[in-house]
């Protein structure tokens, strides 16, 4: 990979300052960035590690009842510590990558990268989470803007993610057999004011909400409520692991399973 200057600040303010230099990039757990750099797909002049910033780590429940997760919190910590408050989210975190990856990869890194097959975007969108950066709060509905594209601006880092805790929720991941990313993943969360269904892995536009299912499930939170619906294969990803039609079919199957598991 190309060489770069490595910096590991101890505070958000220092990290933001370090990211001010030209071609600097933040480094979360590096579990996606480092393999990409090995292929020389990125050439940062400087990598600013976020792993030394204590204020960006940890899991806690806020006064408003939302679950707060620091942007630099590794998946393994979320898997271990979020379970008491938001089991579906902990379950999702416990199946990202593999154990070693989960010890390094972070929620902020995953959401900033917004891989179309990553798990966390479906939880954030499916929970109506708030992405808190060093200078603003972004609603999940505004944050995800297509494959590998987010509302983040250059040098902006995710310091915290706030998840409203649902009454019931579940995540169903159907793995792509090689990468073990989601070939399709569906996150279903039932809140007092309605149900949210977020789908990852399937769409060429990245994570999205399946609004027909949300409407149906908001009036009847049962697997059979989705029976009459279908997802159009248009715009779904087709690759060597699955056709658009297959992914469309999985969305429905996994939604039903998520609802059944949540209920």
């Amino acid at each position: 990979m190309y060489n770069f200057e490595f910096e590991k600040p101890g505070s958000i303010a220092d990290a933001v300052a370090a990211l001010g230099s030209e071609d600097a990039m933040p480094l979360g757990g590096g579990q996606t960035l480092i393999p990409a750099m090995k292929q020389r797909l990125n050439a940062p002049s400087k990598l600013v590690s976020l792993s030394g910033i204590a204020e960006m780590k940890g899991v806690c429940v806020r006064d408003d009842g939302a679950l707060s997760i620091g942007g630099a919190t590794p998946h393994a910590v979320v898997a271990a510590e979020a379970g008491a408050h938001y089991p579906a989210l902990a379950g999702l975190a416990s199946h990202i990558g593999d154990p070693a990856v989960r010890n390094r990869g972070t929620i902020g890194g995953s959401l900033a990268n917004n891989d179309p097959a990553a798990c966390y975007p479906s939880a954030a969108l499916g929970s109506g989470a708030t992405i808190v950066t060093n200078n603003r709060e972004i609603a999940a509905d505004d944050y995800f803007q297509g494959m590998f594209t987010t509302a983040l601006e250059e040098g902006e880092i995710i310091v915290e993610v706030r998840f409203p805790i649902p009454e019931k929720a579940n995540y169903q991941k159907f793995v792509q057999p090689a990468s073990r990313f989601a070939l399709t993943g569906v996150f279903v969360a039932k809140y007092a004011d309605g149900v949210r269904v977020a789908v990852t892995g399937a769409s060429e536009e990245g994570v999205f909400r399946w609004s027909e299912a949300e409407a149906a499930l908001s009036s009847d939170f049962s697997a059979s409520a989705v029976d009459g619906l279908s997802v159009s294969p248009d715009g779904m990803i087709g690759d060597i692991h699955g056709t658009p039609a297959y992914r469309a079919s999985l969305i429905k199957t996994l939604t039903k399973r998520a609802v059944a598991a949540a209920a």
Binding site: F174, P177, L183, H241, G242, T243, A245, Y246, S249
Partner: peptide, 11 residues
């Protein structure tokens, strides 16, 4: 016999 192929064969 990936899931996608088996599903396609079934359907």
């Amino acid at each position: 016999l990936s899931p996608g192929r088996v599903w396609a064969a079934m359907n």
